[in-house]
């Protein structure tokens, strides 16, 4: 359900990624594409030079030359630039606090792609839609009280998803217990993708 201006979401669903637990196996990335865009399984997003998926794996090296890895995805910002810039209101907040897209209202202008500071949207080459987490198939899983595909696929329990408004949810408890951070905090977008920095 689309939130109207001034309305508060009933839930604040958020993703948590534990970088210390993560083995960088890529199962979440494959599961995401297989679930939400199976037609893209063997096709790459040219701008990213990687599999077209709603989760991006960004690899680099630290100052000591050791390899580092970041899993990046839609942050479901509470002050999302993509929602502010979409001309016809195709991008909106739903009552779960997620940033969603109404395909009927999308003209494929790519403004939301250019407006996202996290560079997590990609244009689907077949239907012209700007894709990102969460895909419709994962939204359906959540509606059925299941976890999104990436959380289900992770063999190391490095991913979690739940309601920040619920003090008993696993994500709330993890974030209370373990040190964590968000990306580009200074951008002021109030992201809801949390990176946990020590093993649980």
């Amino acid at each position: 359900m689309r939130l109207r201006r001034g309305q508060k979401p009933t839930r604040r669903l958020a993703h948590v990624w534990n970088e210390a637990n993560c083995t960088a196996c890529g199962a979440c990335i494959i599961a995401c594409t297989a679930t939400n865009a199976p037609e893209m399984m063997h096709r790459e997003e040219k701008g990213w030079n990687s599999l077209a998926s709603n989760i991006r794996r960004i690899e680099s090296a630290n100052a000591q030359g050791r390899p580092t890895m970041l899993l990046n995805q839609c942050q479901h910002c509470e002050d999302a630039p993509c929602v502010h810039t979409c001309p016809f209101g195709a991008v909106y907040y739903n009552d779960d606090g997620l940033v969603a897209i109404d395909e009927r209202l999308c003209i494929g202008c790519s403004y939301c792609v250019a407006a996202c500071p996290y560079n997590v949207r990609w244009m689907h080459p077949d239907n012209g839609l700007p894709k990102k987490c969460m895909g419709q198939a994962c939204l359906d899983l959540v509606a059925a009280n299941q976890q999104p595909a990436c959380v289900q696929a992770c063999p190391a329990n490095a991913r979690d998803f739940g309601d920040l408004n619920d003090p008993n949810s696993s994500v709330t408890q993890t974030l209370r217990r373990l040190p964590n951070r968000v990306l580009l905090e200074k951008a002021g977008t109030k992201p809801k993708y949390f990176i946990v920095e020590s093993a649980s």
Partner: peptide, 25 residues
């Protein structure tokens, strides 16, 4: 990338008043 959807978009945007007045576009 979805130019063909422009008339449908405008129809629904008028019907549901979903225009985004915050958007420069």
């Amino acid at each position: 990338t979805r130019w063909w959807n422009l008339p449908v978009t405008i129809f629904y945007a008028v019907l549901e008043l979903s225009f985004n007045f915050q958007s420069w576009m």
